[in-house]
Every structure is written in C-alpha cells, then in structure tokens.
C-alpha cells in the first residue's frame, strides 16, 4: 500500500473511534444517559470540583486531564463526543489525601469532558470543560 500522509496519520493516531463514531448520531444523549446512570438522576451542583483539561489538544489520543474534588468519594469522567462516553471512575479510599487524580484520555473529536463527583454527604457535583481536538481518532 502506498504510504501517504493520511495513511501515516491513521496509523499514528489510530482510527479507534471511526467505527462507533459514524454509527451513532446522538452523542450528547449517550453521555447524559451514562451520567444519569451514575447519579441516579439526582440534582448536580457546580463550583466545588475543578477539572483541568487543555483548551486545545493537538493529539486526541492522549489528552492530559486532572480532576480535583475535595470531599468526594467517587469521581466519574465522561466524554460526550466519544463512541463510548464513559472514560474512568475514581474511587477514593481512606488514605487518599486530596481526592484528586490525573490521567491521560482519548478524545475522538472536539467535545466536552464532564466530571461528576459523588460527595461524602451523598450529593453530586459536576464540572465540564470543552477540549478542542486537532487530530482526533479519525485522523483529522
């Protein structure tokens, strides 16, 4: 096969999202469903937890994100433009200090990353950040 620039991009960034990406028209509702599953439909407050994410991510295959959620027992991360909106769930144990964590995630395209935290008193807090993805999972 001829090695074109597009081909290299496909190999390099991985076309991991393309299949599910084209087949699913309603991304936002998918992530809403996933969030409702996590919260049980409870009201969510805002302003307590923070989400650190880049405004622009050049490579959607590895986007550094961090969440800081003082007083949370569980934090779930969702990406509303991914074929599968769930990203990760952090459960904090008794020896966890700051109730925060950082990791690297995959984003198929420009979208919102949402963090939902379950607090010690059983209430929920959320925060979201838009990340612009230059090269997503579909090589452009």
């Amino acid at each position: 096969m001829e090695i074109t620039r597009r081909r290299i991009l496909e190999i390099g960034t991985g076309a991991f999202a393309c299949a599910g990406f084209l087949g699913l028209p309603a991304f936002a509702s998918l992530s809403d469903d996933a969030i409702t599953e996590f919260t049980g439909g409870a009201e969510m407050g805002e302003g307590v937890i923070t989400l650190t994410a880049p405004e622009i991510a050049e490579n959607g295959n590895t986007v550094p994100i961090g969440v800081d959620a003082p007083g949370a027992v569980e934090v779930s991360i969702f990406a509303d433009g991914n074929p599968e909106p769930k990203v990760a769930t952090f459960n904090f144990g008794p020896l966890s200090a700051s109730r925060g964590a950082s990791t690297r995630i995959r984003l198929a395209r420009t979208q919102n990353v949402v963090a939902v935290a379950k607090m010690e008193d059983g209430t929920f807090q959320m925060v979201s950040a838009e990340v612009k993805v230059t090269i997503g999972g579909c090589g452009g």
Partner: peptide
C-alpha cells in the same frame, strides 16, 4: 492493606495508562 484509590478504566484511557494521585502516609 488500606485503599488509597481504586480506578475503573474504560477504553477511552490512553495507551500506557498513567495516573497521578496523592496519598497520606501515617
């Protein structure tokens, strides 16, 4: 024996999963 963090990973976690977090050491 005491838990610090327990993470559930989905396919949206990048290759070579990396985590940074804080812990208290008594």
């Amino acid at each position: 024996g005491e838990n610090v963090i327990d993470v559930t990973l989905e396919p949206a976690i990048s290759t070579n999963p990396y985590f940074q977090f804080d812990a208290v050491v008594p």
